[in-house]
Design a protein around this nucleic acid. Structure first.
Lengths: 238, 238
DNA sequence: ACTTGCCTAAATCTACAGATTGATAAAATT
DNA sequence: AATTTTATCAATCTGTAGATTTAGGCAAGT
């Protein structure tokens, strides 16, 4: 939680000198903020963040030297506890999506009123997310679209449901890339029995080999019985 | 875009009779809304939505008969163009996450001021997302956490980067579950060359067979060169 | 000129995958 | 009681996967 007794330490990163100065002046007007760094270089900015651990980082996302998204990643990966607010000229849904996915806590357009920037700083500093309604809508455009695409692969008579309990067990081991012999040992049955099961699985999943069986399983939401917590495994797009 | 000349057609689904009545009365106070249906049954509600195509569906997410999340899924799957606003007593981050992922356009807590509900209706009816700041923060708690978990699997010296261009091409075909002969035909090289590449891939990825190579590729964010648009493939958690 | 890395390829060989057929016994359905 | 499904196993056979070794051509860097 934010300590109102102390000034918020803020870091600015923007390759555009004019913007940098403008923002700096804007923030200087606020008595309870303290600009601990301002730089036009993304790489330098990242190092400064690591050194000074600011409460909030205001960062442009369009920088020539280093991609803003990469910069977010670098800072997040570094483990420094800070709150990144993206300053962007664009409201592309996928840019917003990626920035937020990488761990940005706020996103503000440069065209927005400067008061929004102050709002953003306050919100993220107190552990909240700041994403104005317009940008939130943009974000969800991408997010829900991606989710829809994904759900398509799970649709249409999921053949996995036709598998018996035993076949599920076998398939689970198959998806771990284990060979017949090891599967037989793990399930304490003979290797030929395993082969029988695997063949039945192939027929049910309408594939010809284990690689395709595993692919089918993974792209159709196969979950092992044992795994209680459904591991999230959203991917790519980053 | 919303046509302000016509009244917004609204559907209510809430298993709690008192809530249902309360919301109905609340909405009736607004002159430009038209409640085209109100039911305590989730299943009936879904059918009513299919029949009457309301502009907005206000739906409780805690219903005994059918899970609210499933209800969202049913409506979205049906292809009916409508905007679902979730009414919930809980602000669990994963509940919000799942509801939004399934395609809900708004999320309002029952404890919130009734004016928020009106706001939500207006926003979603005009194609926007309505997610109050508190709930947005909750949503991103889950979202960013999931993304972090995911990124872990991609971390640590991604061996995929060590692959040559050609090896990448071969690996891509491997991940499609194609055999040596077909790969050779597709790349117009001999089968033995393919084997050589595959063996090199195995060594680089530190695996012994194609199944494990494919598994490694899929769990470490393998992307083919050709795929321009990064297909999102976020999964599970639903 | 020399080294290094990549793509290509052949030959050989072992081991495992996968197809096929057939059979038994228990369990669940009807 | 009769039938179907499931789980188990055996034997056989073909094909492919994958390991290994050797090697030529080619491009890029030292």
């Amino acid at each position: 939680m934010r300590d109102f007794g102390k000034k918020l330490r803020i870091m600015l990163i923007d390759d555009n000198a004019n913007h940098l100065r403008g923002i700096k002046e804007l923030i200087s007007l606020e008595t309870n903020y303290n600009v601990v760094g301002a730089t036009r270089s993304a790489n330098l900015g990242i190092n400064l963040v690591k050194k000074y651990h600011p409460d909030v980082v205001l960062m442009d996302i369009n920088m020539p030297e280093k991609d803003g998204l990469q910069a977010i990643q670098s800072i997040v990966k570094s483990g420094v506890q800070t709150n990144i607010v993206i300053l962007s000229g664009y409201d592309d849904s996928d840019l917003i999506y990626r920035a937020m996915k990488l761990g940005a806590k706020g996103y503000v357009l440069k065209t927005m009123a400067s008061s929004k920037l102050i709002d953003a700083i306050e919100e993220v500093a107190s552990g909240k997310i700041y994403l104005p309604a317009v940008l939130s809508t943009r974000f969800f455009e991408y997010f829900q679209n991606a989710a829809k695409e994904e759900s398509k692969t799970c649709e249409g008579e999921n053949l996995l449901t036709t598998l018996t309990v035993r076949e599920n067990e076998v398939l689970e081991l198959l998806t771990e890339g284990i060979n017949y012999k090891s599967i037989a040992q793990k399930l304490i049955i003979s290797e030929t029995t395993v082969k029988t099961h695997v063949n039945n699985i192939f027929q049910k999943l309408q594939v010809n080999d284990r690689t395709n069986a595993v692919l089918y399983a993974l792209t159709h939401g196969f979950k092992s019985e044992s795994s209680v917590s459904p591991k999230s495994a959203m991917m790519s797009a980053v």
